[in-house]
Design a protein around this nucleic acid. Sequence first.
DNA 1: ACTGATTGCCCC
DNA 2: ATTCGGT
DNA 3: ACCGAATGGGCAATCAGT
Length: 556
Amino acid sequence: MEYRQLVATYDRLDATASTIEKTEILATAFEDAGELLPELTQLARGRLFAPWEPDDLGVSSSLTARAIANATGVAHDRVEAWYRETGDLGDAAALAVENRSQATLFSGTLDVATVYETLRGLADYEGAGSQDRRIDDIAGLLADADPDEARYVVRTVVGAMRLGVGEGTIRDAVAAAFLDDSEEAVSAVERAYEVTNDFRTVSETARTRGLDGLASLGVELFRPVKAMLARKAESVADALDSTERPLLEYKYDGMRAKIHVRDGEVRVFTRRLEDVTAQFPDIVAAVEAELDAENAIVEAEVVGYDPETGGPIPFQELSKRIKRTSDIEELAAEYPVTVRVFDLLYRGDGSLLDSPLVERLARLDDLLDADGETLERATHLQPESLEDAEAFYGDALEAGQEGIIVKNLDAAYQPGSRVGYMLKVKPTMEPLDLAVVQAKWSEGRKSEWLGRLRLACWDAEREELREIGRIFSGLTDDELRELTAKLEPLVRSVEGRTAKLRPEVVIEVEYEEIQSSTTYDSGYALRFPRFGGFREDLAPEDADRLERVERLYEEQ
DNA sequence: ACTGATTGCCCC
DNA sequence: ATTCGGT
DNA sequence: ACCGAATGGGCAATCAGT
């Protein structure tokens, strides 16, 4: 299949806002794909790998910009300039190909399999010179590409197709292409995807074996199921109101883990389905000792603690263990963990996804060693009243945890994030008033606007601003527009898409937590910062004091 | 052997 | 992770 | 209600450059 055909599909997806039309366009492409269907279901989202496969291409914007320059003979600076202007490296690539120098040869056209295999192959290069080989491979594709082809090759490399196509659209299109558009067909595809996490398997099964084939795809050990995600509730009362038969659990600040046991062998997966078994030998040993099952899937939060005091440690410290490949045992001793178990998805020879939570937990309790040191049920309560629940929430905060999770004991395990299954309640922090010292032009739809603010608090002792991080969401389009108008007159200098500003604008900033930081000169940074409103009444010197930040940090 | 830049459906 | 806008 | 896009701090690994 020629890549040009796929590009035509991309362009049509890009041109329509209607999800119904997007589904139709994709369904047609899937029907025509033949043997290339598995690759096409990945490429449609700009992804090359199934979620649990290592998919480190080792190349993103800066190296790709070099590849574009190499392939087209256009100066690297010009490619960078187009990238800055358009905010999209794919568009910059298209421009570069249009303006390619005479010296480079346009030798032909691409086919889909070549693009897919070449890009996948980037991940295999290691060691000295590997970046050059990656650049050469990408440049090789671009040398054979016309401008539109180049745009989407590059967008695939950098992982930002921006076509409005995600999992939901692929799901609907697979159903429409090989089954029908009934609710039954869509649910069958969805279910198959939830348990396999792989659209290549799902689409190929739907094509060759239809509805029955999809139904035969079930939970398998060592193939992670999508995680059930919580939604936010405003208060304990709200959460209880919308939950039939509530069970409350502490919400811990750690790492979500899915632990599979197959014939006694243990594997640990993250929420995004990365295999981190090698990083957590202590968890493997604890599961072997404290979980009475040869075949099972349990779900848990891995929580670090200080071996000296026994108290909880910041997530930053636990996170040192997650990607570590050396000195594993030393790190395990320095940052030991407890495993707070809260669900059982599989036991013995079958899936428990469709069983109600109350039954899954009863079976989980059967398997857990009551005196285990490392594996322990997440602290939980079946509340009799709102007062009960609020007291439990208070206990959780008192114990230094994030808040609570509210679950429905009658509900099945529902992978993904849906209404009516699971809620989280967390306290809101007092917002900070911070001065805006720098801004960047945004990307994509928002690329005309100055967003992405760098913020500072006021150091009263030294009488100067000290940076404390950036903001990352919370602005409506109107606010972004207003912000841009306010900031543009304050621009002192521009470098790339970054503008340094005279610090005159002060905004309110919400966040989840204050972290210690080596990145910012205040020594602190905000976790999940978001815009809370303009403070027209404040000057930069009126921004929150560093002292207050320090105090809040100590208090939390 | 060291540093700085870059990367990641990373973790949160 | 959180939040916003489109459907 | 759902989906997709766009964005934060901070970590270890990797590699280019010296």
